[in-house]
Design a protein around this nucleic acid. Structure first.
Lengths: 229, 229
DNA sequence: ACTTCTCATGTTGTATACAAAAGTATTGAC
DNA sequence: GTCAATACTTTTGTATACAACATGAGAAGT
């Protein structure tokens, strides 16, 4: 399915390496490769119809993202994060969100507060319609507004980076029964705290809002895999 | 000075690209290239005595670190962070340290507490000797212990990454008169809070400890450049 | 039978060759 | 004299060729 993209006869501009990096990321996320698999440069080059050079460039990007590990003179191996590492990342994500919220509470604009209300309303609609995908989209918009309103572009970028990294795992736990409604009510508390410029409360609520996702994820995983790792 | 390394006739193992990335990093930090300069692949290849390939690999790594910006079909350009971005990074660094401290206060081992005392004693010695370099080294050890004791390897890695990125700028403000002694006394408060497992206090002290570095840096810069950026 | 050395094979890392695109300068028209 | 178009140069992105190294099999020796 992702393959077909590459049969378009070079309509795309820019560097092929960029697209290949994205495509590989997708392949890894979609479980085409398992943890520990070696990514064969030549095979992938043939598969994408390019030479080894752009493949290797894509590898470097993935290695810097932490998706693969490049061992010198040995090759690159996919490195799916283990449960422990995932929980660590969720913990850091919760802290990031908390910081964004704390900073945003003092710096947020009125327009952004309105936008939060709008996104939240869209979230509510999605919940009522039982549309998990729509909720996911609007939820993302909600959080990105807060990242932006932290007033710290560097923090925003780092938070987005981790958010993106956790995307495939975050999605799983959103499917859980009752989580959507709970998440909604948390959103409302967050908006209130931001409106009142209550820095500590906004930070704490956001941190807990994400931390609970990590816990849900933990439960989900440990119920699925009896003794992985 | 860093050039000489490359005249050693291939004693070094591993990939040359790795070393080149480090060397380029050093060159940029040391001010050999200014903001906006284009990094000429061919010139650098000749300079390092290699082909363009490892140079380009090094570029990618630097681009991912944010030191240079790669514009497709145009080349890579040095991207020194402006004052605003630096202050943003210091703000995030302060938050990282605070998080590490808060988490560490609950998770730190007795051995690590002892190691903190040792590092702190070495810091004190360096202050008394007026040895800024030694202080810098021991200070780094002190902080890294706390990162590690956060018990979150992912957080530790991210914090080290930013710490490393801020290294050249952090160093400037340490040279300021009286900063060493102040920094020392802050360290003692931090150790005490960690010993008492006072999470909030440890977090707050560490955050402020770094935040003040950002402020000092701000003052320093604005006193040097009247109206940069 | 087990160890060790050597060689064969395959893979990575680097160099070079080539094509496409951006930049630059010259020429020509108005 | 200015502007625009075109040819020319420079530079990036990619492909291919080559060399260094790792791995594994097989032969020789104990």
């Amino acid at each position: 399915m992702a393959d077909l993209v590459w049969h378009i006869p070079f309509t795309m501009d820019a560097r092929r390496a960029d697209h290949i990096a994205e495509a590989l990321e997708g392949l890894i996320f979609n479980g085409e490769f398992s943890d520990g698999d070696r990514l064969d440069e030549i095979r992938l080059a043939e598969r994408f119809g390019v030479s080894r050079t752009p493949i290797r460039e894509a590898f470097q990007r993935l290695a810097l993202s932490g998706l693969v590990e490049a061992i010198p003179r040995r090759g690159v191996f996919v490195r799916q994060p283990g449960l422990v590492e995932l929980l660590e990342m969720f913990e850091v994500m919760a802290e990031f969100e908390g910081i964004c919220g704390r900073l945003a509470s003092a710096r947020i604009t009125n327009e952004a507060l309105d936008a939060l209300q709008v996104a939240n309303a869209a979230c509510r609609q999605a919940v009522e319609a039982g549309d998990a995908d729509a909720y996911y989209r609007e939820n993302e918009r909600f959080h990105h507004i807060i990242y932006r309103q932290s007033g710290n572009a560097f923090l925003e970028a780092e938070t987005c980076r981790l958010h993106r990294r956790l995307k495939p795992f975050r999605r799983m736990q959103l499917q859980l029964r009752g989580r959507l409604a709970q998440s909604m009510s948390e959103h409302e508390g967050i908006v209130q705290a931001l409106t009142n410029a209550d820095a500590e409360r906004a930070g704490r609520l956001l941190r807990e809002h994400v931390a609970v996702q990590g816990e849900k994820f933990h439960h989900l995983m440990s119920s699925l895999k009896p003794a992985a790792e």
